[in-house]
């Protein structure tokens, strides 16, 4: 179909070709080539050594996504039930941390979670650590919170929670109130109104929220590096090392990226199948 406006799309097409399609092609080419050139599958064969990193990455990303969902859904739901003034303020509060630099926010968590950081000082003050020692017969000075998987998950949840809340909230707030009244009229109590009307109709928002939290979580390297202290290496760190770090091997890095990309895409497709029949999830 010829549209007289179609030439306005040309810059976008060029942009996409340059910055989306070309890099993907380069990743594919690199993944299948040896360091000295020529086709090889050796990069994929070497990946077996890193299975533990793959599992850890997906495990932490899944946990972070679930936690975001468990916090994000009720928050979105309750927010949508409040007045417009409350909704505006809540929205600003949710967005506020995002106006600050991502690294800065994560650094501040470091100083909160450190062995003699804010949280441990607080625990000391209120006697929580003494209480713990007297109960368990231990003699610790602080809780070790930094450089744990828990800290990494916390960092992910903190950074990506708004991406879960926003899509869910925007779907719920647009729900037609007469649908809820209709369900009540037809004999549904509060629980059934939620389960049979609100929940299925908000599924598109949930799916795009999951996508928007899971994808950056599984590929993050800054959070795991800063809060995990390098001991909890994730896929992002591994890839970074291949390109910038001491283990310089861009071919292997490309292969890992490719595999990760494929796994993520497969996950997303399967999940969207799940929500099929509902409106298609908004992939952002």
């Amino acid at each position: 179909m010829k549209n007289k406006l179609s030439h306005f799309a040309i810059p976008y097409v060029v942009w996409m070709a340059l910055f989306v399609v070309a890099p993907i092609i380069m990743v594919v080419v690199y993944a299948f080539s040896a360091a000295e050139g020529g086709f090889t599958l050796a990069n994929f064969a070497r990946m077996g050594t890193y299975t533990v990193v793959f599992t850890r990455s997906f495990k932490l990303a899944i946990i972070a996504t679930l936690v975001c969902l468990l916090i994000g859904y009720p928050v979105s739901y309750m927010m949508s039930k409040e007045g417009p003034r409350f909704q505006r303020i809540a929205m600003v509060l949710i967005m506020l941390p995002m106006w600050m630099n991502f690294l800065l926010r994560t650094y501040s968590w470091m100083s909160i979670l450190e062995n003699n950081g804010l949280l441990n000082q607080l625990f000391q003050k209120i006697g929580l650590i003494a209480l713990y020692n007297s109960i368990f017969g231990t003699d610790i000075q602080f809780f070790r919170m930094m450089n744990t998987q828990g800290a990494v998950v916390l960092g992910m949840v903190y950074n990506y929670l708004p991406f879960m809340i926003l899509p869910i909230y925007s779907v719920i707030v647009k729900l037609d109130n007469s649908l809820i009244e209709a369900a009540r009229d037809l004999g549904a109590d509060t629980f059934n109104v939620f389960r049979r009307v609100i929940l299925p109709l908000s599924l598109p928002g949930v799916l795009s929220g999951i996508t928007m939290v899971f994808v950056p979580s599984v590929s993050t390297f800054a959070i795991s590096k800063m809060l995990g202290g390098g001991t909890e290496m994730m896929l992002g760190d591994l890839i970074e090392q291949q390109f910038l770090g001491g283990a310089y091997n861009p071919q292997l890095g490309a292969a890992i990226s490719l595999v990760m990309m494929i796994i993520v895409v497969v996950c997303m497709v399967v999940m969207n199948r799940f929500g099929e029949g509902e409106e298609q999830a908004v992939m952002l």
């Binding site: 037609d176 007469s178 009244e181 209709a182 369900a183 037809l186 109709l201």
Partner: peptide, 16 residues
């Protein structure tokens, strides 16, 4: 409403 022997047809139908 869900305990009344009354049902409603809404203005914009409100079909699920």
């Amino acid at each position: 409403p869900y305990r009344r022997q009354i049902n409603t047809v809404f203005q914009k139908y409100a079909l699920f």
